[in-house]
Structures are given as structure tokens and as C-alpha cells.
Simulated assay, not measured.
Amino acid sequence: MTIGQNAEKTKRDGSLARAARATLLAGGLLAMAGPAWADPAQTYYERSFVLAADARCDLFQPRVNAALIAAAYQARGAALRSGAAHADLSATAARARSRAASISCANPDLKTVRARVDHAFAGWSRMPRMDFEGWSANRSVYSTPTWRLMQASASGAAPVQFGFGGTDPVLSAVVSFPGKPRPVAARVVMRDATLLPRPWLLNDALPPVSVRTSLWATGVSPADEGLLAAERRSGEAWRFPAHTTLALAALDPREPFLVEFHFRDGSVATARFTAGDFSAGRAFLAMGSL
């Protein structure tokens, strides 16, 4: 082989290597809604890297950025459920940010990744609905209020749905109790991340009362028909303060939280939920309505 042929081969091999690296990196970003990944921590690394590169180099439009944020939260939740430790995932994200900081915005690999991600999310950004762990998200616009992000549960025979309904920016719980007794108050109960920063995963239960937070509903009204559970004709919608969203987002995806309904006679009806991929669902909604 001549010197010229060697040089040409080296150039060709270098181009193929760059394309392969870009393909591998973009590949982890394309299976957005898959239920599991062979290596969720690696997927989280890839998505964190692209987000960090986007923050530096302004690679993507806002809708694609929101989709990538949803994908990163989704991958993080999958990694935690597969047994990854919070500390390890924090280190993974730090490595991704460090790598992104060391790469030029003009790097050809990054340009290839940008093109592939843009192509993949061009279709994904038009998806009106997506199911995340524990949550159903819906970006469609209807003439009457419906759920945008919702998780369903029950308290005895009463169906309870919790999430963002209609155009309301705060979380609410819609419940349909049979019979005449109605609750006089409602609250969301969960771990207080400011008092207990680490997740509480013992026996799938809430932590001790001393490190819980109680977020009482700020109001109640008849529920819109589109927010009622199937075959229910009436119910109440309990609205919770705005900071409930931040408190829920601070939970580990595996942690439970409760919605309690308090009655005048002192009895309490409880519906159980799981934090799941709440943050991923919120990021999906941030892509805008369709």
C-alpha cells in the first residue's frame, strides 16, 4: 500500500469512527418511550451529555430540548428502578457535563448527533400522548377540560385521579365518593425532601411522621365531566398549592405518596400513588399543546 493510500485509508477510517461514535450516542436518544434499556445508566449518561451540549451550544429548538429533558428524567427513573444508586447517577451526570464542556460546538460528531436527534424528535414532538412510569400525559387540546398528566388510584370504592387537569397550573385530586358523606378537607402526604434528603424506600411505605410534609388543599369545586373516572357522573376536584409540584418532583420515582380525604366525623379515606416519572411527564407537557 502506498503512502497516499495509507493516508486515504486513515482519513476514511477516521470518518467512519466519528460516524460510529455519533450513531452510538444518538442511538440511545431515539428509543424515547421504551419500557426498559439494556443499560439505563448509560442511556442516562448519553441524554445528559446531549442536554449539556445543548446548554453550551444551543443545538435544539425549545420543543426538542423539552423532549430531551423528558427523556433524561425517564432514563434516570429507569436506572433507579434497575438498582442504580443516586450517588452513582449524580456522578454519571457530572461526567456527561464534563465531557460536553470539553467538546467544541463545531465538533463534527456533535453536528451528526444534532442532525440525528432533530430527525428523531421531529416525529416524537408531534405525539399527543405518552405513558410514563405511573403517569399518562396528554398534550391534545379539547373543548372541555380533561387530564393533561394523571395517575389513577382509588380509596375503597371511590376512584381517585391526581394530576394536572384542564388549564389549571396546579395539581388537583378528583374523587367520586358514593353516598352523601363528603370530605371537608384533603391533603397530600409525602416525604419532606428538605428534612430527609435521601429517598425512603423501606417496605414501600412512607417515612416517619417527623420527616413527612402535609400539603392541604386550598379549595374544592365540582369536578368537570372530563376529569371524572369512567361511569362516574359527579365528583369533587380538590386543588393543592403550587409548591406541591416541587415537593412531588423531589421524590424518588419509586417512592409512594398519599392523598387523604378527611371527613367531619374524624374518619380519613386514603388513596395511594407513586411518584414514578412525574418529572418526565411534566417535561413532555412543556413541549406545548397540540
Rank of each mutant, 00 (worst) to 15 (best):
L196M: 15
P197Q: 11
R198C: 09
P199R: 06
W200N: 02
L201N: 13
L201R: 14
L201F: 12
L202T: 15
L202N: 14
N203F: 13
N203Q: 15
D204C: 08
D204P: 07
A205W: 08
L206N: 01
P207K: 12
P207S: 14
V209F: 10
V209C: 05
V209Q: 13
V211M: 08
T213R: 07
S214D: 14
W216T: 14
G219D: 11
G219R: 11
G219T: 10
S221V: 13
S221F: 08
P222G: 13
A223Q: 02
D224C: 10
E225C: 07
G226A: 14
G226N: 13
L227D: 01
L228Y: 00
L228R: 00
L228W: 01
L228P: 01
A229S: 15
A229D: 12
A230Y: 09
E231C: 04
E231G: 08
R232P: 02
R232F: 06
R233Y: 11
R233Q: 14
R233V: 11
G235L: 01
G235C: 00
E236S: 14
A237V: 04
R239D: 09
R239W: 04
R239S: 14
F240R: 03
F240Y: 10
P241M: 12
P241C: 12
P241W: 11
A242G: 06
A242Y: 07
H243R: 09
H243K: 08
H243N: 13
H243M: 08
T244Y: 06
T244H: 08
T245N: 11
L246R: 12
L246M: 09
L246G: 12
L248A: 10
L248Y: 06
A249C: 08
A250C: 08
A250W: 06
A250D: 14
A250S: 15
D252F: 01
D252W: 04
D252I: 04
D252C: 05
D252R: 02
P253Q: 03
P253W: 03
R254A: 00
R254S: 02
E255I: 00
P256S: 07
F257D: 01
F257Y: 05
F257K: 03
F257P: 01
L258S: 05
V259I: 11
V259D: 02
H262P: 00
F263H: 06
F263P: 02
R264T: 10
R264F: 05
D265L: 07
D265G: 07
G266Y: 05
S267K: 10
S267E: 09
V268C: 05
A269K: 12
A269L: 07
R272C: 05
R272K: 13
F273W: 01
F273M: 03
F273A: 02
F273V: 00
F273G: 00
T274V: 04
A275C: 09
A275E: 03
A275S: 13
G276Y: 00
D277C: 09
F278A: 01
F278E: 00
S279M: 11
S279A: 15
S279T: 15
S279D: 12
